[in-house]
């Protein structure tokens, strides 16, 4: 039997908002296999971002366990979690979150600083991924000299450059026009197919959601719907 990439067991997450305790996730149990291209949908406040944060080792659950590639990360220390993030997980954000004072090249290079690679290997890897996202000519430009779509491409290259098992994207297309959003999703889908990297992205845009091979719908902190779509059913869904 294969090991799932992500395994959540009865996850609960609550936090205090002023004097009120808010439960963002309740009893979420979920398994994601390597190579999946998963859309996480739901209204805002449904717990999408909280779920991504927990899977991304950015936060700890109030109850339940999280396993990443068979490793229980629930009880790990902060430095160990940082280590896992830098090696196994890539992040793509709605607002791109590039470092403004670094060039596109340096932004992509940054996560590699924790990967223990030599200078030349780093340079090669960065160049390879800038080519992959079609920005080889924009390497020296700072984020403020790039368009929104180009910035998100840099962010994708940055997420992929460490060759992670899992890429988490929180509303990656929400700040882009629909054409650019489609291109970004094509790029992510292409990388998913070529490298087998698992993608989990939160979105409430139905056009984006419907291009995923699996759709998980969250409602009030619980999984309301979890559908794995075959290629045929996906085409059918897209056509209608």
């Amino acid at each position: 039997m294969h090991t799932p990439l992500v395994k959540l067991q009865a996850i609960r997450k609550s936090y205090s908002l002023g004097k009120v305790d808010v439960t963002a996730l309740r009893e979420v149990t979920l398994v994601i296999d390597p190579g999946e291209f998963v859309a996480l949908s739901g209204t805002s406040g449904s717990g999408k971002t909280t779920l991504l944060n927990l899977i991304g080792c950015l936060d700890k659950p109030s109850a339940g366990t999280i396993q990443l590639a068979g490793l229980d990360v629930t009880a790990l220390s902060l430095p160990s979690l940082a280590n896992i993030r830098s090696r196994k997980i890539g992040f793509i954000f709605q607002t791109f979150n590039l470092i403004p004072v670094l060039s596109a090249f340096e932004n992509v290079e940054y996560p590699l600083l924790f990967a223990g690679l030599g200078h030349r290997q780093r340079q090669e890897r960065v160049r390879q991924w800038l080519n992959q996202v079609g920005l080889e000519n924009q390497a020296r430009q700072r984020p403020d000299q790039l368009s929104g779509g180009q910035r998100q491409r840099v962010a994708i290259a940055r997420a992929m450059v460490t060759q992670p098992n899992l890429v988490l994207a929180d509303e990656p297309t929400a700040n882009l026009d629909s054409e650019t959003a489609g291109q970004i999703l094509d790029l992510m889908s292409q990388i998913n197919q070529e490298t087998g990297t698992t993608f989990l992205f939160a979105t409430h845009d139905p056009r984006i959601r419907d291009r995923a091979s699996r759709q998980i719908h969250l409602h009030d902190g619980q999984i309301a719907n979890d559908v794995i779509l075959t290629e045929t059913s996906r085409r059918f869904a897209n056509a209608h």
């Binding site: 993030r85 979150n97 470092i99």
Partner: peptide, 14 residues
Amino acid sequence: TREIGTLMAMGTRR
């Protein structure tokens, strides 16, 4: 602040 969050998300130590 968000930049700091991003840097830490990518594995930068405190």
